[in-house]
């Protein structure tokens, strides 16, 4: 009986794949024949407000640009993403774009796309595959973000005669933004020997850990002038720790962060943060423009950096009412 059950399941799943395959070829014929650009996009998931804003931006930009967007959510799983890309290949979309869950393991599926003559655009995160397998990588430059944060400190403390003690809250150990932002920041502050990182610990990109780590670090390092957090959330947690230690965030301890999500911008507008480097999820318009260029056969740069800005307290007050995320 058990055997029969397995057979039944196998039969049903076979039938289902046949159906989806049919649907795929159908989509393909409409896609390649019409003039509208068909873009297959595989998103990582919806793990944060940042990611949700990223998805919204891509969907809205596709609508305004008249692009036929085939959107798939991988729910943080590489196998889902590979399956999605394979289905895009079967559907013969014009361009495939995806935000890879992890760095490794993409060679096989990227080669399949190349064999099918479908150009691939990476968004937001990079892969370690050979650069010939994708057209371009569109996303933030994390090193540059760290550099911008460091540069603000260099300017802010250019007249400082005494050492400026900095605490750095790093992101998740081993993640690309954590490695790159640290690198860029430390490069930039090397310009001024007075700027000294006295403690650097990981806060896992979360508010709770940011608070816990900061609370411990404040006790081990009595004279702290600046906090640099690799994202807003850790900064927000650390801000509470600073307040609970009886000091004023934004004045006694200056806070510099990266991301510019709504809660962070609110803290900046309230004067509790001092400076935020934007890491924008709103790359939809750039993605559509690049995809159109790629379809038209124009050459695009191997690396396209997202348009991003920086915010101080005055700019945050202006930007807050119209902030999308």
């Amino acid at each position: 009986m058990f055997k029969r059950l397995i057979l039944a399941i196998a039969g049903v799943s076979l039938a289902l794949t046949a159906v989806t395959a049919c649907g795929g070829s159908d989509g393909g014929s409409t896609g390649s024949n019409s003039d509208t650009l068909v873009l297959g996009f595989s998103q990582v998931g919806a793990e944060s407000g940042w990611r949700t804003a990223n998805t919204l931006s891509i969907k809205e930009a596709a609508k305004t640009a008249g692009v036929d967007l085939k959107f798939s959510d991988a729910q943080q799983k590489q196998e889902n993403q590979i399956a999605a890309i394979r289905s895009f290949i079967k559907q013969k979309v014009d361009v495939i774009a995806f935000s890879p869950v992890v760095v490794t393991g993409w060679d096989a599926v990227l080669k399949e796309a190349k064999a099918a003559d479908i150009p691939v655009i990476l968004t937001d995160r990079a892969v370690d595959s050979d650069a010939s397998l994708y057209v371009t990588f569109l996303g933030s430059d994390f090193v540059e973000e760290g550099r911008k944060a460091g540069q603000w400190l260099v300017d802010e403390y250019k007249d400082a005669k005494e050492p400026v003690n900095i605490i750095q809250l790093e992101g998740t150990v081993g993640s690309a933004p954590a490695i790159d932002r640290k690198k860029g920041f430390e490069e930039a502050i090397a310009a001024n020997p007075n700027l000294k990182v006295v403690a650097s610990q990981s806060g896992d990109f979360t508010r709770a850990k940011g608070k816990e780590v900061m609370q411990a670090l404040l006790k081990a390092n009595k004279d702290v002038d600046v906090l640099f957090a690799h994202n807003d959330d850790m900064g927000l947690g650390a801000m509470q720790a600073i307040e609970e230690a009886g000091r004023t965030p934004g004045k006694d301890v200056k806070i510099v962060t990266i991301d510019a999500v709504r809660d962070g911008m609110q803290a900046l507008a309230d004067g509790k943060f001092n400076f935020i480097v934007e890491c924008s999820p709103l790359l939809g318009d750039q993605l559509m423009a690049t995809a159109k260029k790629v379809k038209a056969g124009e050459t695009v740069d191997k690396r396209i950096v997202t348009v991003e800005t920086v915010f101080d307290q005055a700019k945050a007050k202006e930007a807050l009412p119209t902030r999308k995320y």
Binding site: S202, A216, L217, A220
Partner: peptide
């Protein structure tokens, strides 16, 4: 142990 790691300045990579 967590607090010790933070205050003793053990590099995040080796925690």
């Amino acid at each position: 142990l967590d607090t010790t790691i933070y205050t003793a300045g053990i590099p995040p990579r080796t925690t």
